[in-house]
Computed example of a mutant assay.
Amino acid sequence: MPNYRRIWCPGGTYFFTHALRVRHGNDLLVRHIDVLRDSVRTVRRSHPFQIHGWVVLPDHLHCLIELPPGEADFALRWRLIKMLFSHDVPADEWRSKILLRRRERGIWQRRYWEHLIRDDEDFRRHLDYIHINPLKHGLVQRVSDWPYSTFHRDVEDGLYPLDWAGDPQADVDLYDD
């Protein structure tokens, strides 16, 4: 059995990947984007965190968030976000007998990827990865065409030009999901 170890850093900045349990052909996250946004807003009110970057794709999401000074419990925040989202979307997915017995929805993969950001270069690399993801997955021809991303906010703030990574033939050296 794998030995998963999380790094708990009060006030830390983290990169996360969360995926749906059934990924292929599943567009649940973008189909219910307003439910996801409301879930995040609700959790941020009671358990604050700063969003540096976020992208929601049909079957997974990536984000870069910063916890308040002295706080390290990102797991609680994610548990609440996923719970609220799962509660508020229609229960039309197939569920095994085990999931039914446990009264679980089975929407999300049990595990998720977490990475503690170490320095400015690491931060920038992960922020770029977040924003390039819709292009990488072939969902758009230009990063600016994907509506479910903080890229648009970052363009307004002058962090990226509108045409950043707009050439689908460009060689982007970012690691895979």
Rank of each mutant, 00 (worst) to 15 (best):
M1L: 08
M1W: 08
N3S: 15
Y4V: 09
R6G: 09
I7Q: 11
W8R: 05
P10Y: 02
G12I: 09
G12R: 03
Y14G: 03
T17L: 02
T17G: 00
A19N: 00
L20G: 01
G25C: 00
G25R: 01
G25L: 01
L29G: 00
H32W: 07
H32L: 02
D34S: 14
V35K: 08
D38A: 11
V40F: 02
R41H: 11
R41T: 11
T42I: 09
T42S: 12
S46T: 12
H47E: 13
P48T: 02
P48Y: 05
F49L: 10
F49Y: 08
I51Y: 03
I51N: 10
H52S: 07
V55G: 01
V55H: 00
V56I: 07
L57N: 02
H60Y: 15
H60F: 07
L61F: 14
H62V: 04
L64E: 04
L67Y: 01
P68A: 15
P68S: 10
D73L: 05
D73W: 04
F74E: 02
L76D: 09
R77L: 08
R77I: 04
K82Y: 03
M83L: 13
L84W: 04
H87W: 13
D88H: 14
P90V: 03
A91Q: 14
A91C: 02
A91G: 10
R95F: 02
S96G: 10
L99F: 07
L100C: 08
R102T: 09
E104Q: 10
E104W: 04
G106R: 07
Q109S: 06
Q109E: 13
R110F: 06
R111D: 13
Y112V: 06
E114V: 15
E114H: 06
E114R: 05
H115M: 00
L116H: 08
L116P: 03
I117T: 01
I117F: 01
D119N: 11
D119H: 07
D119V: 00
D122N: 03
D122A: 04
F123Y: 09
R124T: 10
R125A: 15
R125D: 09
H126K: 12
L127W: 07
L127H: 03
L127C: 06
Y129R: 15
Y129A: 12
I130W: 01
N133M: 08
N133W: 06
N133K: 15
P134Q: 10
L135F: 05
K136W: 11
L139G: 15
R142I: 12
R142E: 15
V143W: 01
S144P: 08
S144N: 13
S144D: 15
P147L: 10
P147S: 06
P147H: 13
Y148M: 12
S149T: 12
T150Y: 07
F151L: 05
H152R: 14
R153P: 06
D154C: 06
V155I: 12
E156C: 08
D157W: 14
G158M: 12
G158H: 15
L162Q: 14
W164R: 06
A165Y: 13
A165I: 05
P168N: 13
Q169F: 11
D171M: 12
V172Q: 13
D173T: 10
D173N: 13
L174W: 14
Y175T: 12
